[in-house]
Nucleic acid binder design. Structure first.
Lengths: 194, 194
DNA sequence: GAATTTCCGACCCATTTGTTCTACACAATT
DNA sequence: AATTGTGTAGAACAAATGGGTCGGAAATTC
């Protein structure tokens, strides 16, 4: 009973690995169960269907991302550094995620709406985080934003803009230099001039 | 008619890519043909079966390897350098091949005998190459091998010994340093002491 | 030792997949 | 113009694969 939840995450972890390698479609329940050294039907004791496993994987991944982002903020003190860290980690993680989903999804596919649902839920969270960062930075006098809500939304828009090439292009983009450029732009537009 | 052979290699190339990603079993004819923008049944005009394509891929890969090795020898002049280059490239290529076959083969599998056939055929070639290298080196006075045949066989045995961990272990091995050690051993055992 | 939890082999059946077959389009050749 | 040869693909099909169910063994807990 306490183990059950634990075993569920074990399933999630291994399934995630196989999904990322072979994609959702090509991954079979047989494989997942074999990797867990269990019978195929045993898996159904923990999850109702293959899709259910997949949803759990996505949810898990989303929480992972959330955690990494919040710790990224806590790692440093000053608001500019917090913002920089946040954006940096966000980019890195999204690059990883884009790899994951490119591998997992069949090129068509209708699973996108599911991801979109998760994503839109996190959008609000992200906005709150950014708003707080901007607000704190402004009240400490290191940022100079008139309205932290709209400023946060603007930043978020920029960040989303950076996702597009990640998810649609195959070409290797020099993430780091692009990142520097973006950060530079944000800071020089937002940091109080002396 | 001249195009036909050309198109066969195009099939081989694309099939190889998909095989290496998804493995033989999970790769479907549908996928291969889709990647080639042809109808599924059209592929059968060029190859009799999925297995036949796979055999062609392996054969192609083997020839690729042979070429890389012979050019590796020609790149340098002195016998020790030739030997070093040969072993170096051989290791690198085998590391790549091991990745390929680990990805392509289902963990069981009876395809091994097929690979073994190809391999044993190349064994003789390799032995001839090594023997020549040793022989030339000895007659130039830079090596000191009593019997180039048996020396070559000894070297080949060592090289095979290095394959084992490549194909069976997952752990990342530091190829370069191991390589240096082996080369050092071979040379200090074979180079005429002053 | 009964109850409950966890596991699995055997089965079901819809879908997939390797392969065959036939027919069609288009050139080249007769 | 008819024939032959080359390349293509759609339809059809038998075999397999794979997701999911079920009844009941094992194992664990009470």
């Amino acid at each position: 009973m306490v183990d059950k939840e634990e075993y569920r995450t074990r399933i999630i972890l291994t399934a995630s690995k196989i999904f990322s390698h072979y994609g959702f479609r090509k991954t079979t329940m047989e494989e997942i169960s074999r990797a867990l050294k269990k019978g195929k039907s045993s898996i159904y004791y923990y999850f109702g269907s293959k899709e259910e496993i997949f949803e759990a994987v996505v949810l898990y991944e989303a929480n992972q991302l959330r955690m990494r982002l919040t710790t990224a903020i806590k790692e440093v003190e000053s608001p500019p550094e917090k913002l920089r860290n946040y954006i940096y980690v966000r980019m890195k993680e999204f690059a990883k995620l884009s790899n994951y989903y490119n591998a997992v999804f069949d090129k068509n596919l209708d699973h996108y709406d599911f991801v979109e649902k998760i994503r839109s839920r996190y959008d609000r969270e992200e906005l709150a985080i950014l708003r707080l960062l901007v607000y704190v930075g402004t009240s400490r006098g290191v940022f100079a934003a008139k309205d932290s809500e709209y400023t946060a939304m603007a930043i978020q828009t920029m960040l989303k803009g950076m996702e597009v090439p990640l998810f649609w292009r195959k070409r290797e983009i020099d993430i780091n230099s692009r990142l520097e450029a973006i950060l530079n732009l944000i800071f020089n537009g937002i940091i109080r001039k002396p």
